[in-house]
Design a protein around this nucleic acid. Structure first.
Lengths: 205, 205, 205, 205
DNA sequence: CATGAATGAGCTTTCATTCAT
DNA sequence: AATGAATGAAAGCTCATTCAT
């Protein structure tokens, strides 16, 4: 890695750390610079302005997330898992996500924060992330219904159950460090959650 | 209401609106004053400093929440609902909460935001709110288990299912205005959620 | 005069002094503030930004100039001086201008400077000031030609002779303080200049 | 020309262009470098600091001017033009100057600007340029008076008439691009101006 | 009771400049 | 011969806060 790239990375890392902790607006470029071990001027050599630095955090994280998890088209996913059951598919999906969130917990925090207070980030999140996640989830649910595995509840609530547990985990455990952080690993978390939800939504007949 | 009190309220309301939209750190006292129709100096007549204004938003909302929902001691609650079933109890509880969140959505947003970036608020939230909510939930679950209604899953996951759905609703629907906002009223939401979760956690025998 | 207005004036005065001496771009708001005996923040209470402060200097000076000298419509001027000779008219005009330039020499310097380096000021000067001055001059010359007093030379050169001397005086004497500053008063200057030019352009027949 | 010299020239040219347009203080070394197609560091290889770059622009232009026009000592000039009339001499002189100004309009603009805002340049201009020009003009006028060609007016006004027209032309036509730029060539300009002034100052007897 | 006027401290950003390569 | 990388210093500007009225 070139010296340039290293410096750029140092800055980004420093920014993520501080912003995750104190919020974007309350983190000064001075602090970011100091924390990164570079001068303030250097930050602006690499990032046009403070906003671009934030955007980089957001977009990079989301890109990584896509690369990691969401980037395959739905037909591909289904094709690849043709003879796997729906719950296996969901299990894989959830585990993957938990894993990613754990590994990128600081950057995820930043995205959470800014989604709440920054219009641009909010729109980006809605249009780029949410839409795609929603689509994937929905299509799995529909599949499950077609196979007669899921009973007739508004998809809306099923998604709520799934997403809710994911986001609860992220927000309360990773962000606020409230709960039983690390009591279970990603795979166990996914399994336990699905155990409840599947029972809750499955067709009894 | 005295003129003083009115002014004070105007300021608080103005602050909640703006802070919910743009975040505490990005909202200037100048804007708050303008939006409230008072001078900047007036704000500082009523609130020692900007931080106190934030604290007031947080503490007032949480107090309201307690008054509204969490303020009875657990034995009282159980005594009062002695001959009601557990799911009725939870249904009531959830409905109440959804209702409160809907009515105080802006202030709740502020609490969410600041819980993420402000150490003091975070501690306050952990110690005052979370603990109490957790306690209540836990004791209900324990009760349910004793009555043989709930199967043997780590309480942790059951709470996750419950809180997750609440959280999801607040964050995604009220804060981000993403989803089917207002498709269902608070009571319907509560019922549908519990329908899934209860099936998911109930003892089958 | 209210305290506000006094402060505002102090700032403007301080700015004119410093900018005339060192140029707009090289004069910091810090210096202007210090020189005015106020804090930097106060400057920005009264002027949205540094540019607005410059604009105020320019527009105020030009407005004063118009009030002082150019604001009457041409027919008015001619009507009021119906039975005065052309050279008397020009003599009045020039004297007036010299006088104004002497009294506002610092602000005029600022306008000169910025006309050279600032697109906006340049356009403003072209459209608002130059056009009007040119119009007046031209119409006087035309009048003189009609009366058979001025020989047949391209107006362009006559204006050049007139403007040139004015300009020279301002630039070299007031701005650069080069020459015989104050050797002659405004009226004497005007008379001597016209003495030369009139001889130079008059019809000999 | 060596590569070094070429680079140095590129930088100077780039600086003149930009500074003429926006002023010295508002032109950054970054822009100059970019416009010249070199790195910022390279500028400082060739010019100790930004100020030296400005000084080079000023001194080079003035040197060129001297080489072009003012460098012969007065006796030389007169000796060389012994049997030419005064007005022929002035005509030559003016034409020469207009020509030079047209050809070096950008650099001349820089000198104008900086003469107004930069003490050092101002002194340089006063002592090196102005004095010499003034001397030449004065001696020609004196000669004219001795020959009985020029009537008894304070030299000061005669010079004002001459210089005024020159500077008007430079400032308003070259710098501000206001007027009939290029309607007349240098020689025609000189002739027309002298036509007026000579009539204006000549001895009538 | 409310505010107009003022400000010190701090922010983001740009600048001219240095230096190792 | 030229530059990529870095920076201290200073710029314009905003902020929360004070205080006399």
């Amino acid at each position: 890695m070139s010296k340039s790239e290293e410096t750029k990375k140092k800055i980004l890392k420093s920014a993520i750390e501080l912003v995750a902790d104190k919020g974007y607006a309350s983190t000064s470029t001075r602090e970011i610079a100091k924390n990164a071990g570079v001068s303030e001027a250097t930050i602006f050599k690499y990032y046009k302005n403070k906003d671009q630095l934030l955007k980089k955090i957001v977009s990079k994280t989301i890109n990584d997330f896509f690369k990691y998890s969401l980037n395959k088209s739905l037909p591909e996913v289904f094709e690849a898992n043709k003879n796997k059951s729906i719950d296996y598919l969901l299990q894989e999906l959830l585990t993957e996500r938990f894993q990613f969130f754990k590994e990128n917990s600081k950057a995820i925090q930043v995205i959470f924060q800014e989604t709440m207070v920054n219009k641009e980030v909010r729109e980006f999140f809605k249009n780029k992330v949410w839409t795609k996640m929603d689509e994937l989830e929905t299509s799995i649910i529909i599949k499950g219904k077609k196979q007669g595995l899921i009973r007739n509840i508004d998809n809306y609530f099923i998604k709520k159950a799934l997403f809710g547990m994911i986001f609860y985990t992220v927000f309360f455990e990773e962000v606020l460090e409230l709960d039983n952080k690390n009591k279970y690993n990603s795979e166990e978390q996914a399994r336990a959650i699905l155990d409840i939800i599947f029972k809750g939504i499955k067709n009894d007949k």
